[in-house]
Design a protein around this nucleic acid. Structure first.
Length: 476
RNA sequence: CGGGGCGUGGCGCAGUCCGGUAGCGCAUCGGUUUUGGGAACCGAGGGCCGUAGGUUCGAAUCCUAUCGCCCCGACCA
């Protein structure tokens, strides 16, 4: 029925790209690894930004903007940071036709510029905490790219906070992790596992990295957001000290955290189907599309009049659009909006008009039900809630049904290969074991869940004792 | 960086083996009839065949070089 979209079962990767193309979310740019975010894709990002920005502000954060170009020497100030990012930095060596005295790095992340400024802004405990977020683009010279999931340039938000105590830093790190989890689950309808990363997976320069991990429909994991407790690493690298109440000079405690346009990739791979994009109502740039179906001009004006009166008080409550274009036929329009993932479609033709009803079609289930025009204004908001909830539950059930506990290494290897999914296993906590796991299975430790119950067991590789299970999976 | 594939109207492709001056589908433009799941018919516009050399009377096609892109792996949000 749907032309131009490869089935998920045939080629998942192709399907993903087809969904993006048919929904007009993004296009390849002239430069390899870069993408153009088209209006349909950007509209989703704007919805995400709006909600996240609100949540950050409610938690006391403010927005600022720091520059794109960073002196190369700044990147070298924190040892782990430079080691982690140097290989993927793009560097500006010339300006105005002249070679620069010092090359400028195009930010891959902004810790270093921001901390160079925090040094000037922080003197006293009274200056703390600093809770700043910025919406920005960053560039990382990736070897291999995929639309939304990994592009050379991407859009994100990066929060950078400074605190007087390690406790406050830790509290902030977890507060943000929780905001990310709430956003992913309540708005994206994308269930996530939240917890701490292993040392191997930790952000370059962080003391501890926390993350949310989601399962895509091919049962691979997607790291959807990270929140880092930076300890005093950056404060020491940039010499940022403050005087406490007792007059002692101390280094400040820091966090940084971010989510990116990768979330759009996660949204697509969590909910979309073989007919194209499916967007959860809370992030849909358009929640309801109304398609009048007419033959004569008289019918058209009668329908539009009725639709006007039905939707008269929708503005500000429901994001809707009446598709009354006369150069496209109804069937074409149905298909067009379906591919774009609009949650609800209302069809109204002369027959419906005579019965004072509309045909309502859910994008997520494809279910069609006639609905009286008298009830529709009341029913739609409730239905949008229902769709949002159903989408989350469907995704959660899918993940839970593909999450297993395994204690036998041979079985684990076999199942990772044949069926994929998330596996909760015992691990001895050692880096070398983790490396071996990755080499032999291609899977990585995604997260050590904060609320994982204590359970004594044996490491699945080494047989050494373990106190709790960790989640492993193949990832994007 | 390894493996695979591909560069031909806006998009998707055929033509390449076996050289003879470019074609199909979709899209676009005009017209008529249509309109409850991607409309039909008639007509029209649009391409130095990725680039640069070479062979030849003649190259999309053969040879050489080169550039680029996509997909799969290793690294990463």
């Amino acid at each position: 029925m749907v032309k131009g979209i490869t089935k998920r079962s045939e080629d998942y990767s192709k399907w993903y790209l087809d969904v993006i193309a048919t929904a007009k979310l993004a296009d390849y740019a002239p430069v390899k690894g870069c993408m153009v975010i088209r209006p349909n894709g950007y509209a989703i990002w704007e919805r995400m930004q709006a909600e996240l920005d609100r949540m950050f502000k409610e938690a006391g954060h403010v927005n600022a903007y720091f520059p794109l170009l960073i002196p190369e020497s700044f990147m070298r100030k924190e040892a782990d940071h430079v080691e982690g990012f140097a290989p993927e930095c793009a560097t500006v060596t010339h300006g105005g036709g002249k070679k620069l005295d010092e090359p400028l790095v195009i930010r891959p992340t902004s810790e270093t510029v921001i901390w160079s400024m925090y040094k000037d802004w922080i003197q006293s405990y009274r200056d703390l905490p600093i809770l700043i977020n910025q919406w920005a683009n960053v560039v990382r010279w990736e070897m291999r790219t995929r639309l939304f999931l990994r592009t050379m340039e991407f859009l994100w938000q990066e929060g950078h906070t400074a605190h007087a105590t390690p406790e406050e830093g830790q509290e902030e790190t977890l507060k943000i992790l929780n905001i990310y989890k709430t956003f992913a689950e309540d708005f994206m309808a994308m269930p996530v596992l939240a917890g701490v990363k292993t040392e191997k997976e930790r952000f370059a320069g962080a003391k501890e990295t926390y993350a949310i991990e989601a399962m895509m429909q091919d049962k691979r994991a997607l790291q959807a957001g990270t929140s880092h407790n930076l300890g005093q690493n950056f404060a020491k690298a940039f010499d940022v000290k403050f005087q406490d109440k007792e007059g002692n000079l101390k280094y400040v405690w820091a966090t940084s955290w971010g989510v990116s346009t990768r979330l759009i990739g996660g949204l697509i791979m969590t909910h979309s189907d073989d007919n194209g994009l499916v967007i959860p109502p809370k992030l849909a740039p358009l929640q309801v599309v109304i398609i009048p179906i007419w033959k004569s001009d008289d019918e058209k004006s009668a329908l539009l009049n009725k639709i006007d009166s039905v939707t008269s008080d929708w503005k500000g409550k429901i994001l809707f659009k009446v598709d009354d274009r006369d150069n496209y036929r109804p069937g074409w329009k149905f298909n067009e909006w379906e591919k774009q993932g609009i949650p609800i479609r209302l069809e109204m033709g002369p027959r419906d008009l005579a019965e004072n009803s509309m045909m309502l079609v859910r994008r997520d289930t494809g279910e069609k039900t006639p609905m009286s025009c008298d009830n529709i204004t009341r029913e739609i908001p409730a239905l949008l809630e229902t769709i949002q909830k159903d989408m989350f539950e469907k995704a959660r059930d899918y993940r839970d049904n593909s999450t297993y506990e395994v204690d036998d290494y041979a079985e684990l290897k076999e199942r990772l290969k044949s069926e994929g999914g998330f596996y909760r296993i015992h691990w001895n906590g050692k880096r070398e074991t983790e490396d071996r796991l990755q080499n032999e299975t291609k899977a990585t430790i995604r997260v050590i869940e904060e609320n994982a119950p204590k359970e004594s067991g044996k490491c699945i590789l080494s047989g050494e004792p373990s106190e709790r299970r960790v989640v492993i999976a193949k990832s994007y």
